[in-house]
Amino acid sequence: MAFTSVADFFAMGGHAVYVWSAWGLTTAGLMGLVISTRLSRRAVEADIRRRVRRERSHS
């Protein structure tokens, strides 16, 4: 363990702003990609379902 206390860990020896903003934005970016991929998957599936319904109602 490189830190003596939890507060010490979050303070990062005075570099908290830099370390946590870099880590935070990276995490947010990666999570954002996963979430947006899931959302687009759902949108594509809904789109296919809608199209099939429309085809059936026409036939």
Partner: peptide, 11 residues
């Protein structure tokens, strides 16, 4: 660099 070098692990 002290603790600021920990940015290396994402950079």
């Amino acid at each position: 660099q002290g603790n600021s070098f920990r940015i290396i692990y994402v950079h």
